[in-house]
Simulated assay, not measured.
Amino acid sequence: MKKIAVHLADGFEEIEAISIIDVLRRAGFDVTVVSMNKSMEVNGAHEITVKADALFEDLDYDNINMIVLPGGMPGAANLKAHSGLREQILNFNDMKKPLAAICAAPMVFGNLGLLKEKKATCYPGFEEELHGAIITGEAVEEAENIITGKGAGVAIKFALKIVEKFKGKDVADELATKMIAD
């Protein structure tokens, strides 16, 4: 079973995080919600607190197949500032392991130089943070090992793209139909 780590920092966008976690678990993935804090509780941008499954420092990334970053502010900025997460993202990219970020969070990949000459999308106003990317403005983009999404309104579509990446379009389409998201 594929293991996916969804990283939450204080100020994360709740719709994105919960939609992604829910869709991926419905699809049968082993999803670990990772707190970037020193506690298991992470506070969202709209004052919704989520209890994580693991602290960043305790997670064994050798057993993780994909890193996912929900956006929101200041959540995405807090993810970008976390040196340990940046190191893990660079390691994943070097190994061509999948990475995904939505809303403002693609700026984490952009600031690490991972989006150069790749199609990407983000929340409007964060385009300059995607250094060297080919910014499309589409709802969801996939370029090599990186998936990016535009924002909260496309969180389910973004999560379904992750399902498609690992399990194929038919499985993603069937799940979308069951969720009435097609």
Rank of each mutant, 00 (worst) to 15 (best):
T121Q: 06
I156Q: 07
E127Y: 07
F109P: 00
N145G: 02
G84Y: 09
E129V: 02
V108K: 00
V154A: 13
I156T: 11
E141F: 06
I146H: 00
I156Y: 03
A133T: 09
N145Y: 00
A143F: 07
L85N: 07
E117V: 01
A105D: 10
I135K: 07
K165W: 12
E141H: 08
F126Y: 15
G149L: 04
H82M: 12
I147E: 00
K157D: 14
F158R: 02
I147N: 00
T148A: 09
F109S: 01
L160P: 02
H131Y: 12
M95C: 06
A152P: 12
I156M: 14
I146P: 03
L130C: 05
A139M: 11
L99C: 11
A101P: 03
M107H: 03
I134E: 12
E138V: 01
I146G: 03
T121F: 12
M107I: 07
M95F: 11
P106V: 12
T136E: 04
I135Q: 09
G153N: 09
E164V: 04
F158I: 05
I102M: 08
A104E: 10
K165T: 10
V108S: 02
I162P: 02
V163C: 01
V154G: 05
M107F: 01
K161R: 14
I156L: 08
A155M: 01
P106K: 06
A152E: 00
K116N: 12
A155W: 04
T148M: 08
A139Q: 15
F92W: 10
I146T: 02
E164F: 03
L85P: 09
L160A: 03
E164Y: 03
M95L: 15
L115E: 07
L160M: 01
I146K: 00
A101R: 08
I135L: 07
S83C: 04
S83E: 15
G84Q: 13
K80H: 14
T148N: 07
A105S: 14
R86E: 12
V163H: 05
I102L: 07
Q88R: 14
D94V: 10
E141S: 12
N93A: 08
G149S: 06
G84K: 14
K165S: 05
K157A: 14
F92R: 09
N111R: 13
N93C: 08
G149R: 05
K96M: 13
M95Q: 15
G137N: 03
A155P: 00
A120H: 06
E138A: 15
E128D: 15
A133M: 07
E138Q: 14
I89Q: 10
A152I: 04
V163D: 01
K150F: 07
K161D: 01
A152G: 11
F126I: 10
G84F: 09
P98Q: 06
L79V: 00
D94Q: 15
A81M: 02
A81K: 13
K161F: 03
K165H: 15
K80D: 15
I102F: 10
I146D: 00
T121N: 12
L90R: 14
I102S: 04
K119H: 13
G153I: 09
D94G: 11
A120T: 13
G153K: 08
L79N: 06
A81P: 03
I102V: 13
M107L: 14
E144C: 02
A105W: 07
L99P: 05
F109L: 09
I162E: 02
A120S: 11
I89N: 12
I147K: 04
K150E: 11
Q88C: 05
G84A: 14
K118L: 14
A152D: 05
H82P: 08
A81S: 13
E142K: 15
